[in-house]
Nucleic acid binder design. Structure first.
Lengths: 154, 154
DNA sequence: CGATATTGCTCAGTATGCTGACGATCAGTA
DNA sequence: TACTGATCGTCAGCATACTGAGCAATATCG
């Protein structure tokens, strides 16, 4: 009988579980209340001003039905704005607010600290190897989830 | 500016996302309707008959408030039973049913297939190295989440 | 024994993620 | 131009995960 520890799926769940806990703890210590998902969305909005929700979802591999709620909460916190697009009346253009920019700037050390803590059991070399292997496995399985990563069309 | 792909936390989320999608697809192909979480719980109940909910949660690193709903659904599907403990009237003893045993047996190939698909982008050696590194990182961060893994007291 | 602390379980509330469906809009084509 | 299909956003419903609270029962200690 296979042990849970031999199941990559189980290890994936555990690793993600710890990653979220560490992120929330570090961010809370810094005095902020932002989830990993909200952080990634906000950072991506800042890097791609005026993008629509579907594009945002593709850039960070979220489901389009999930992104609605995430943006709702960013807007409610005053960190982002959602406005109608002039070119496509179906789409909403997303912008980061000054408050969102301030939050991102102040929260960055906590986010980086969280990434370090997550790998604290590994050497630098091992940490890099883990990320390389994860990237490789993820690339091979990208299209297997409903919300694949989509590179910008450029 | 750090890319998402340099964030182990982001990679963790993506890998887990794909793992769940692959698991559900393989299991559905085999004609069953069981989530990864429900599968792990059921397999652990089978391996440890009569265990209580807190012990089960510890063995698979689930939160105690999460396990309640998971068991609800296993019971509702007729795969497990929850009965009062005679030694501790707070506790519930968990048992797998014959139907649960049958389901586990028939579903095993799909579960194993899912694990293979999840690593299909990696060589055998790389897959093993990924699991080793994940285990190591998880062990170091085990106590950082609200639901750490707890080995049986033996 | 009795007060206190701890433990097992549940519940309410919040936040991801997903399936499947829908209305509104846009794009391509006959 | 009218039709068809695709796309954008949203919604309802379900299943994890978590926080924090609470009840009932057990354990511990003075």
């Amino acid at each position: 009988m296979k042990d849970n520890n031999d199941m990559p799926g189980h290890l994936a769940r555990r690793f993600q579980q710890i990653a979220v806990a560490v992120f929330l703890a570090e961010v809370a210590d810094a005095g902020f209340d932002l989830t990993p998902v909200q952080y990634a969305a906000l950072a991506t909005i800042k890097a791609n001003p005026g993008l629509d929700q579907v594009t945002l979802a593709g850039l960070i591999a979220y489901d389009r039905t999930t992104i609605t709620g995430v943006i709702d909460r960013l807007v409610q916190k005053g960190l982002a704005e959602r406005r109608a697009s002039s070119r496509d009346r179906r789409a909403r253009e997303l912008e980061i607010t000054d408050e969102g920019r301030r939050t991102l700037r102040k929260i960055t050390p906590a986010v980086e600290s969280a990434q370090r803590i997550l790998l604290r059991g590994l050497s630098t070399r091992e940490g890099e190897e883990l990320m390389r292997l994860l990237r490789k496995a993820i690339a091979a399985g990208n299209d297997l989830s409903r919300a694949p990563l989509r590179s910008p069309d450029v």
